[in-house]
């Protein structure tokens, strides 16, 4: 008994060490997925918080101007450029998301080519080359600046249920989708009283994924990228149809260039698992799953369509 401590070697045997390492490995293996899930949940919440801030910003804008800001540009002159380039809602909302200083730098908001520079010229670059945290979702692992250092972001406003330029109907043989109005139009915004489908069942703003390389999805300083439509569902495999710079190679979402038979469109997309975050006009934030029926999602996209929307 008394001499046993001398007979035992000090320290651990190899087997003991291996067992301990194996146990630790198993514990880490159990823990790691949990940590990942918590991280994903946290970034999803951060993303929803951004949507809440934007919704509050839109409501503050509405308090001042009695209507929502124009989606693309408030200009009345259409140079054949379809309100592309003189300041989108992302500029209009700046004073209401505590970016008053940036808004003061921006020139020619609400103007046209006869009154000043576009978004990609002169001092406006000081505003459009910046990245705004409140416009960036943390699940976006590679925020992009596709052209000349001008930034893409992760949120787009609701342009209704047909196409970005709000064609009255989209017909595909026996299927017809009729435009049911929207909170945002290319050159004007709607007063909340015009949203007769109900503010809690009409979408205001949702997520998009930033295109990589020269792809312009999420390039919200430029008209056609400022909005999304509900023509196709959240994270649909249906390709987006930008008018130019479509790059469908990985990791970009699918796309093909818009044509007369397949008008300009950008759909709600996210890198969260199973759906997208969206803000409703009443300021509530929801997570909408990819499995929402297309008729319900289109009903949520229209502001005056008169659709009956029950649970989703």
């Amino acid at each position: 008994m008394s001499n046993s401590p001398e007979r035992r070697s000090k320290g651990f045997t190899l087997i003991e060490l291996l067992v301990v390492i194996a146990i630790i490995a198993i514990l880490i293996g159990l823990l790691l997925p949990a940590v990942q899930k918590v991280r994903e949940a946290a970034s999803k919440m951060k993303c929803q918080n951004n949507l809440k801030q934007l919704s509050l910003g839109f409501h503050s804008y509405h308090d001042v101007h009695k209507k929502l800001p124009p989606g693309m540009s408030p200009g009345t002159v259409n140079y054949g450029d379809l309100y592309c380039c003189w300041g989108t809602w992302q500029v209009a909302i700046l004073p209401f998301i505590e970016q008053e200083a940036a808004f003061k730098i921006y020139q020619n908001y609400g103007g046209d080519d006869s009154t000043g520079p576009r978004y990609a010229a002169g001092v406006n670059l000081q505003v459009t080359q910046r990245r705004y945290q409140v416009l960036t979702c943390p699940t976006e692992d590679s925020p992009n600046a596709p052209l000349g250092g001008i930034t893409s972001h992760n949120y787009a406003v609701n342009f209704g249920n047909t196409s970005i330029y709000q064609v009255p109907t989209i017909t595909v043989g026996g299927v017809t989708v009729t435009f049911g109005e929207a909170p945002f139009k290319p050159n004007s915004g709607s007063p909340l009283t015009h949203i007769t489908d109900g503010t809690s069942s009409t979408l205001l703003v949702a997520e998009v994924i930033q295109g990589q390389r020269a792809d312009l999805r999420g390039f919200g300083w430029w008209g056609p990228a400022t909005g999304f439509t509900t023509f196709a569902g959240p994270n649909s495999s249906t390709p987006d149809t930008p008018p130019q710079n479509c790059d469908a190679n990985m990791p970009n979402p699918p796309c093909t260039t818009a044509t007369a038979g397949n008008p300009t469109n950008q759909y709600a997309r996210s890198k969260h698992t199973g759906g997208v975050n969206a803000g409703m006009v009443d300021g509530s934030i929801r997570f909408v799953t990819n499995n929402i029926a297309i008729a319900t999602w289109r009903g949520m996209g229209s502001a005056r369509g008169g659709e009956v929307i029950d649970g989703y």
Binding site: Y79, G80, D81, L82, C84, C85, R118, Y119, A120, A121, L147, G148, I150, L216, F219, W222, G223, P224, P243, Q244, N245, T257, A258, T259, A260, T264
Partner: peptide, 9 residues
């Protein structure tokens, strides 16, 4: 930097 909206046929 994109300006005019292009429409493919």
């Amino acid at each position: 930097a994109p300006g005019a909206v292009y429409q493919a046929r």
